[in-house]
């Protein structure tokens, strides 16, 4: 039996909103030691999502037997919208489940709502992602990155990212003109989360589809900072750290012409 209780429904609500536009059907893998993990690739095979929610992400977590819960994220999103952000959220499944039970309790305990969601058999392709060495790592406020990704998309379908020792340059060029945003490394002593950190082994010049970057920045509601690991000509990693877990996106670059 699986029983995973979140202190608030808000984490799961934000997670599903962050990924449901990229992938529709997902297998949630549940185990006592690893908690809940998920890997899903978008239909175009350009963007991969990897989610880890350690047992420590939950107020209570019990999983007697490894389970795979095949879920339609559109349906899960509909159910999660029934609960309030501050509600306790508990996910419950039997050992060979046909359904996932989603229970919201309002913190004052005067209201309990229960929903049963049908599970699906999902035949998903799982890719082996090994730890990669990257040419550079950038950590910046996730809202700053979201703004750049959203703004630059209005200029072009592609966003070029150039990283040098102490700055990151975002460039877009399209039918109406061109634009660039340069951000420099700095340390904010008052609020460390506002700092911009650049670790560089080698300068990087890489281009991504703006559409995918706009999907990725939907996760900026989950973490105040995002870490972007880039290497020339190989997929990039965008990581949003969660309390006791992470949401990672791997994005394939565009070809050099």
């Amino acid at each position: 039996m699986l029983e995973g209780k979140f202190e608030s429904a808000s984490l799961m609500k934000r997670l599903v909103e962050a990924i449901k536009d990229s992938v529709k059907l997902c297998n949630f893998n549940c185990s006592q030691t690893k908690g809940i993990t998920l890997q899903a690739i978008d239909d175009s095979r350009v963007l991969l999502i990897s989610l880890k929610l350690d047992p420590g992400c939950f107020e209570g977590f019990r999983c007697d037997k490894n389970l795979v819960l095949g879920l339609d994220l559109e349906s899960l999103s509909k159910v999660l919208k029934q609960g309030n952000n501050e509600d306790y959220l508990t996910l419950i499944a039997e050992d060979a489940p046909d359904n996932l039970l989603v229970v919201f309790e309002d913190p004052k305990k005067d209201r309990i709502s229960e929903f049963s969601l049908k599970l699906m058999d999902i035949d998903s392709d799982v890719l082996s992602i090994e730890d990669m060495d990257h040419d550079c790592s950038i950590t910046l406020p996730s809202s700053d990155f979201a703004k750049v990704a959203r703004d630059m998309r209005t200029l072009s379908e592609s966003l070029q990212i150039l990283v040098t020792k102490d700055s990151v340059k975002f460039m877009a060029s399209g039918p109406i003109g061109t634009g660039s945003v340069i951000i420099k490394a700095h340390t904010d002593l008052k609020d460390g989360k506002e700092s911009i950190k650049i670790d560089l082994n080698k300068s990087v010049n890489v281009t991504f589809g703006a559409k995918y970057l706009n999907d990725i920045v939907k996760a900026s509601t989950l973490a105040e900072t995002v870490t972007i690991k880039l290497t020339n000509k190989i997929p990039a990693l965008f990581e949003f750290k969660l309390q006791g877990g992470y949401l990672r996106y791997y994005l394939a670059p565009k070809f050099d012409e």
Partner: peptide, 13 residues
Amino acid sequence: MPQQLLTSFFRSQ
């Protein structure tokens, strides 16, 4: 600019 696929970099399990 053509888009690369993740499957050119990562093996299927």
